[in-house]
Protein backbone atom coordinates (compact mmCIF):
# COMPACT_ATOMS: atom_id res chain seq x y z
CA UNK A 1 0.00 0.00 0.00
CA UNK A 2 2.71 2.42 0.91
CA UNK A 3 4.60 2.90 -2.25
CA UNK A 4 8.24 3.61 -1.77
CA UNK A 5 10.27 6.16 -3.53
CA UNK A 6 13.86 6.02 -4.39
CA UNK A 7 15.77 8.49 -6.37
CA UNK A 8 18.32 7.28 -8.84
CA UNK A 9 20.31 10.17 -10.21
CA UNK A 10 18.64 13.49 -10.91
CA UNK A 11 15.42 11.65 -11.33
CA UNK A 12 11.91 11.57 -10.07
CA UNK A 13 11.33 9.23 -7.14
CA UNK A 14 10.50 5.65 -8.05
CA UNK A 15 8.54 3.08 -6.10
CA UNK A 16 10.69 0.32 -4.62
CA UNK A 17 9.21 -1.01 -1.43
CA UNK A 18 6.13 -1.22 0.71
CA UNK A 19 7.10 -0.56 4.31
CA UNK A 20 7.28 2.53 6.43
CA UNK A 21 11.02 2.75 6.77
CA UNK A 22 13.34 5.41 5.37
CA UNK A 23 16.64 4.78 3.58
CA UNK A 24 19.17 7.37 2.61
CA UNK A 25 22.53 6.49 1.15
CA UNK A 26 25.36 8.61 -0.18
CA UNK A 27 23.18 11.74 -0.24
CA UNK A 28 25.26 14.75 -1.26
CA UNK A 29 24.01 18.22 -1.80
CA UNK A 30 25.85 21.42 -2.47
CA UNK A 31 24.71 24.87 -3.51
CA UNK A 32 26.79 26.36 -6.28
CA UNK A 33 30.51 25.88 -5.69
CA UNK A 34 30.24 26.00 -1.90
CA UNK A 35 31.09 23.18 0.45
CA UNK A 36 28.75 20.21 0.56
CA UNK A 37 25.75 20.90 2.79
CA UNK A 38 25.07 17.19 2.90
CA UNK A 39 28.19 15.07 2.48
CA UNK A 40 27.66 11.41 1.50
CA UNK A 41 25.04 11.12 4.18
CA UNK A 42 23.60 7.69 4.86
CA UNK A 43 20.77 6.98 7.23
CA UNK A 44 18.30 4.17 7.83
CA UNK A 45 15.22 4.71 9.92
CA UNK A 46 13.33 1.49 10.65
CA UNK A 47 9.57 1.46 10.48
CA UNK A 48 7.88 3.13 13.44
CA UNK A 49 11.02 4.62 14.95
CA UNK A 50 11.01 8.12 16.45
CA UNK A 51 14.26 9.85 15.49
CA UNK A 52 15.40 13.26 16.69
CA UNK A 53 17.85 15.21 14.59
CA UNK A 54 20.07 17.73 16.36
CA UNK A 55 22.64 20.01 14.88
CA UNK A 56 23.86 23.55 14.90
CA UNK A 57 22.65 26.08 12.38
CA UNK A 58 24.12 25.29 9.00
CA UNK A 59 24.72 21.65 9.80
CA UNK A 60 22.39 20.55 7.01
CA UNK A 61 19.31 19.66 9.08
CA UNK A 62 16.94 21.71 7.01
CA UNK A 63 18.40 20.54 3.74
CA UNK A 64 18.02 16.91 4.80
CA UNK A 65 14.44 17.55 5.82
CA UNK A 66 13.63 19.37 2.61
CA UNK A 67 15.08 16.52 0.60
CA UNK A 68 13.16 13.90 2.57
CA UNK A 69 9.92 15.85 2.23
CA UNK A 70 10.38 16.07 -1.53
CA UNK A 71 10.76 19.86 -1.66
CA UNK A 72 14.33 19.54 -2.93
CA UNK A 73 15.29 17.02 -5.55
CA UNK A 74 18.03 14.48 -5.06
CA UNK A 75 21.15 15.24 -7.07
CA UNK A 76 23.62 12.66 -5.81
CA UNK A 77 22.77 9.60 -3.77
CA UNK A 78 19.65 7.64 -3.10
CA UNK A 79 16.61 8.37 -1.02
CA UNK A 80 13.79 5.94 -0.41
CA UNK A 81 10.87 6.87 1.73
CA UNK A 82 7.16 6.13 2.06
CA UNK A 83 4.88 8.03 -0.27
CA UNK A 84 2.57 9.14 2.52
CA UNK A 85 4.67 11.86 4.13
CA UNK A 86 3.52 14.79 6.22
CA UNK A 87 5.51 17.77 7.40
CA UNK A 88 4.83 20.06 10.36
CA UNK A 89 6.83 23.26 10.07
CA UNK A 90 8.08 25.65 12.69
CA UNK A 91 5.37 28.11 11.72
CA UNK A 92 1.94 26.57 11.45
CA UNK A 93 1.56 27.76 7.83
CA UNK A 94 -2.21 27.71 8.05
CA UNK A 95 -3.97 29.54 5.25
CA UNK A 96 -5.56 32.54 6.98
CA UNK A 97 -8.48 32.62 4.54
CA UNK A 98 -9.64 29.11 5.34
CA UNK A 99 -11.36 28.08 8.52
CA UNK A 100 -9.57 25.66 10.81
CA UNK A 101 -11.31 22.54 9.53
CA UNK A 102 -10.81 23.60 5.90
CA UNK A 103 -7.11 23.97 6.58
CA UNK A 104 -6.99 20.48 8.02
CA UNK A 105 -8.45 18.84 4.92
CA UNK A 106 -6.80 21.22 2.43
CA UNK A 107 -6.44 19.46 -0.89
CA UNK A 108 -8.19 16.31 0.36
CA UNK A 109 -10.87 14.99 -1.90
CA UNK A 110 -14.14 13.47 -0.83
CA UNK A 111 -17.41 14.74 0.55
CA UNK A 112 -16.81 13.51 4.10
CA UNK A 113 -13.96 16.01 4.50
CA UNK A 114 -15.45 17.82 7.45
CA UNK A 115 -16.13 14.56 9.29
CA UNK A 116 -12.50 13.58 8.97
CA UNK A 117 -11.36 17.04 10.01
CA UNK A 118 -13.53 16.85 13.12
CA UNK A 119 -12.06 13.46 13.94
CA UNK A 120 -8.43 14.62 13.95
CA UNK A 121 -9.26 17.96 15.53
CA UNK A 122 -10.76 15.94 18.37
CA UNK A 123 -7.50 14.02 18.66
CA UNK A 124 -5.55 17.25 19.08
CA UNK A 125 -8.18 18.67 21.43
CA UNK A 126 -9.47 21.47 19.23
CA UNK A 127 -13.10 20.55 18.67
CA UNK A 128 -14.14 23.96 19.98
CA UNK A 129 -12.13 25.80 17.29
CA UNK A 130 -13.38 23.96 14.21
CA UNK A 131 -14.94 27.02 12.56
CA UNK A 132 -12.38 29.57 13.75
CA UNK A 133 -10.22 31.70 11.46
CA UNK A 134 -6.53 30.84 11.87
CA UNK A 135 -5.59 34.44 12.76
CA UNK A 136 -7.62 34.09 15.94
CA UNK A 137 -5.68 31.05 17.17
CA UNK A 138 -2.92 31.11 19.76
CA UNK A 139 0.50 29.79 18.76
CA UNK A 140 -0.10 26.45 20.44
CA UNK A 141 -3.54 26.06 18.90
CA UNK A 142 -2.19 26.86 15.45
CA UNK A 143 0.51 24.21 15.81
CA UNK A 144 -2.10 21.68 16.90
CA UNK A 145 -4.09 22.44 13.77
CA UNK A 146 -0.91 21.97 11.73
CA UNK A 147 -0.45 18.63 13.47
CA UNK A 148 -4.05 17.68 12.68
CA UNK A 149 -3.46 18.65 9.05
CA UNK A 150 -0.46 16.32 8.99
CA UNK A 151 -2.30 13.44 10.64
CA UNK A 152 -5.46 13.57 8.54
CA UNK A 153 -3.40 12.22 5.66
CA UNK A 154 -2.48 9.07 7.63
CA UNK A 155 1.24 9.60 7.07
CA UNK A 156 3.62 6.65 7.22
CA UNK A 157 6.41 9.12 7.82
CA UNK A 158 5.87 12.24 9.88
CA UNK A 159 8.47 15.01 9.76
CA UNK A 160 8.53 17.74 12.37
CA UNK A 161 10.71 20.77 11.64
CA UNK A 162 11.30 22.49 14.98
CA UNK A 163 7.55 22.50 15.53
CA UNK A 164 7.66 23.77 19.10
CA UNK A 165 10.46 26.30 18.78
CA UNK A 166 8.13 29.32 18.80
CA UNK A 167 5.96 28.14 21.68
CA UNK A 168 6.20 29.02 25.35
CA UNK A 169 7.66 26.44 27.71
CA UNK A 170 4.39 25.12 29.13
CA UNK A 171 2.67 24.85 25.78
CA UNK A 172 5.74 23.08 24.50
CA UNK A 173 5.47 20.37 27.16
CA UNK A 174 1.81 19.86 26.27
CA UNK A 175 2.67 19.61 22.62
CA UNK A 176 5.46 17.12 23.24
CA UNK A 177 3.09 14.84 25.12
CA UNK A 178 0.50 15.23 22.39
CA UNK A 179 2.98 14.35 19.66
CA UNK A 180 4.13 11.32 21.61
CA UNK A 181 0.62 9.96 22.09
CA UNK A 182 -0.32 10.61 18.47
CA UNK A 183 2.86 8.91 17.27
CA UNK A 184 2.00 5.85 19.34
CA UNK A 185 -1.58 5.81 18.11
CA UNK A 186 -0.81 6.29 14.43
CA UNK A 187 2.32 4.11 14.48
CA UNK A 188 4.16 6.21 11.97
CA UNK A 189 7.88 6.69 11.53
CA UNK A 190 8.84 10.12 12.87
CA UNK A 191 11.73 12.50 12.31
CA UNK A 192 11.94 15.50 14.62
CA UNK A 193 14.36 18.32 13.83
CA UNK A 194 15.08 20.34 16.95
CA UNK A 195 17.60 22.56 18.69
CA UNK A 196 16.54 21.35 22.10
CA UNK A 197 18.57 18.44 23.49
CA UNK A 198 16.06 17.79 26.29
CA UNK A 199 13.20 17.69 23.84
CA UNK A 200 15.07 15.17 21.72
CA UNK A 201 15.76 12.98 24.75
CA UNK A 202 12.18 13.15 26.04
CA UNK A 203 10.66 12.13 22.73
CA UNK A 204 12.97 10.06 20.58
CA UNK A 205 14.05 6.43 20.32
CA UNK A 206 17.25 7.59 18.76
CA UNK A 207 19.07 10.89 18.56
CA UNK A 208 21.29 11.95 15.69
CA UNK A 209 23.73 14.84 15.68
CA UNK A 210 24.47 16.30 12.28
CA UNK A 211 27.68 18.18 11.59
CA UNK A 212 29.03 19.43 8.29
CA UNK A 213 26.47 17.38 6.43
CA UNK A 214 27.40 14.08 8.08
CA UNK A 215 25.98 12.17 10.98
CA UNK A 216 28.43 12.70 13.81
CA UNK A 217 26.60 10.94 16.62
CA UNK A 218 23.95 8.23 16.43
CA UNK A 219 22.68 7.55 19.91
CA UNK A 220 19.92 5.10 20.85
CA UNK A 221 17.74 6.19 23.77
CA UNK A 222 16.32 3.15 25.50
CA UNK A 223 14.91 4.83 28.59
CA UNK A 224 11.26 3.92 29.23
CA UNK A 225 8.72 6.69 28.69
CA UNK A 226 7.66 8.97 30.31
CA UNK A 227 11.21 10.10 30.79
CA UNK A 228 12.52 12.16 33.64
CA UNK A 229 15.14 14.79 33.23
CA UNK A 230 16.61 13.81 36.61
CA UNK A 231 17.26 10.20 35.61
CA UNK A 232 21.03 9.56 35.67
CA UNK A 233 21.04 7.97 32.22
CA UNK A 234 19.13 10.98 30.88
CA UNK A 235 21.75 13.27 32.41
CA UNK A 236 24.54 11.29 30.90
CA UNK A 237 22.99 11.24 27.44
CA UNK A 238 22.37 14.92 27.62
CA UNK A 239 25.96 15.82 28.41
CA UNK A 240 27.12 13.46 25.70
CA UNK A 241 24.90 15.21 23.15
CA UNK A 242 25.79 18.69 24.33
CA UNK A 243 29.43 17.77 24.04
CA UNK A 244 28.85 16.57 20.51
CA UNK A 245 27.16 19.89 19.76
CA UNK A 246 30.22 21.75 21.01
CA UNK A 247 28.89 22.88 24.37
CA UNK A 248 31.48 22.34 27.13
CA UNK A 249 30.89 21.80 30.87
CA UNK A 250 27.24 21.02 30.42
Amino acid sequence: MNTFFSEPENGEPRAVDTTRSVHVSGLTRRFGDGPAVLDHLSLDIPSGQFVALLGRSGSGKSTLLRTLSGLDSVEYGEVARPKAVSVVFQESRLLPWKRVWQNVVLGQKGPEGKERALQVLKEVGLLHRVEAWPLTLSGGEAQRVALARALVRNPSFLMLDEPFAALDALTRIHMQNLVLSLWRKHQCTALLVTHDVDEALVLADRVLVLEHGRIKVDLPVTLPRPRRHAHPVFEQLRSELLHALGVQNA
Partner: peptide, 25 residues
Protein backbone atom coordinates in the same frame (compact mmCIF):
# COMPACT_ATOMS: atom_id res chain seq x y z
CA UNK B 1 6.46 31.11 -0.55
CA UNK B 2 6.08 29.18 2.69
CA UNK B 3 2.44 28.62 1.83
CA UNK B 4 3.45 27.31 -1.58
CA UNK B 5 5.99 24.95 -0.02
CA UNK B 6 3.43 23.74 2.48
CA UNK B 7 0.95 23.11 -0.32
CA UNK B 8 3.52 21.07 -2.19
CA UNK B 9 4.24 18.88 0.82
CA UNK B 10 0.49 18.32 1.09
CA UNK B 11 0.50 17.12 -2.49
CA UNK B 12 -1.69 19.85 -3.95
CA UNK B 13 -1.72 20.06 -7.74
CA UNK B 14 -0.81 23.26 -9.53
CA UNK B 15 -4.42 24.12 -10.24
CA UNK B 16 -5.35 23.39 -6.62
CA UNK B 17 -2.57 25.67 -5.42
CA UNK B 18 -3.81 28.46 -7.69
CA UNK B 19 -7.38 27.99 -6.55
CA UNK B 20 -6.84 27.47 -2.82
CA UNK B 21 -3.71 29.50 -2.11
CA UNK B 22 -2.78 32.03 -4.79
CA UNK B 23 -6.16 33.51 -5.67
CA UNK B 24 -7.56 33.92 -2.15
CA UNK B 25 -4.18 35.22 -1.03
Amino acid sequence: PKFLEMSRTLGLSRSQIIREVVLPG
